[in-house]
Write a protein that binds this DNA or RNA. Structure first.
Lengths: 183, 183
DNA sequence: GCTGCCATGTAAACCGTTACATGATTGG
DNA sequence: CCAATCATGTAACGGTTTACATGGCAGC
């Protein structure tokens, strides 16, 4: 609305500014790799989103092309203005707790399934969570993103605990409690 | 690609089918209310998304207008085809673990802030999590969505625990460990 | 010379939010 | 009669994904 009202979300911008601030100048390609490696469990973005966004951010003065290397490689650096924008977002932005989780949606709808199917679904969810957790557990906890890593570990473990409790509950159900196995 | 490859996500469809299956025929308005009340911590959708989607779903034969009530109220019911689509999604769909969380992004970037600011950010996150948790704790655990409710409670509590640990760690830091408070 | 990775981009489609718009009904 | 709520929708915008497209360089 007002000129002070920036676009709704901007989290992609913030993530890019954060990476540039934390690890120094980088190309779009580097940033895409960083997303995959370090930011993966927190935010995702592919190169097709990153390249145009960097151009817009440069137009807004938040980053600048520091140098151009081999093969048309363009190295972006964060500007002081960008660093300030990053800090003020961190300090001022009230994060929306809103979550869209396919896992949670499946959990919500579990009662629609018969016992066997529900158990199979939860087992698959459990396997998936375990796999994700294993990836996080391999990461270096002394690195930059360690607070988010701890958060991911904590959430992953609590998801696993939920899956185990739910499996126990489902297995303990009397067959009579089940919905009809549908025609 | 092939005619068997349905649109990528469809979670909104699934959520709508799930509500119709679980609680019987309903209007778009009712469904929007249900989203707010029961599905809020799992998936969000406003009426502006729901109305057009119901029209498309009716065109695809997954729901049907069962009756039209007062004030142009249209009551949709799930069709057998819709019920089958719902069940096969639940059983077959491998949920993507991908998460985009502004809270986690802030956690990731915490080391960019000086000690005082970082503590303030985590305290705000903690307050927000507590508030969400309080909402969930008021819900009836015997209702339809109770598996998802348990999951939400579990995740909320682990988030709170993370915030407390992180605050303790930040408060215990030597001032020397801090980044320069930025000109 | 070919394969594979580095490196950058565009275009179309889709999903989701915000703002806008309309009218009926109920209760005070 | 007025306000609140019921009830439905459209339009524009912005963010995200998928597919398409191009070319340089390194090693075999």
């Amino acid at each position: 609305m007002s000129i002070l009202c920036y676009a709704a979300d901007m989290s992609l911008r913030i993530a890019l500014l954060g990476l540039l601030d934390a690890t120094g100048p980088a190309s779009g390609y580097d940033l895409a790799k960083s997303f995959e490696r370090s930011l993966n469990h927190v935010w995702q973005a592919g190169h097709t989103q990153i390249y145009p966004e960097l151009v817009k951010m440069a137009a807004d003065g938040l980053v600048a092309v520091e140098s151009e290397g081999a093969r048309g490689r363009k190295i972006y650096a964060i500007t002081p203005e960008g660093a300030e924008r990053l800090r003020s977002w961190l300090i001022e932005h009230e994060p929306t707790g809103a979550i869209r989780s396919e896992v949670a949606l499946q959990a919500f709808l579990l009662p629609l399934l018969d016992k066997e199917s529900a158990i199979a679904v939860v087992e698959r969810i459990r396997a998936r969570l375990q796999q994700r957790l294993a990836v996080l557990e391999c990461k270096d906890p002394s690195k930059f993103g360690r607070y988010a890593l701890n958060l991911g570990l904590s959430q992953g473990r609590s998801g696993l605990a939920w899956a185990d409790e739910t499996l126990a509950e489902l297995r303990g159900l009397e067959p009579a409690d089940q919905p009809a196995p549908a025609t």
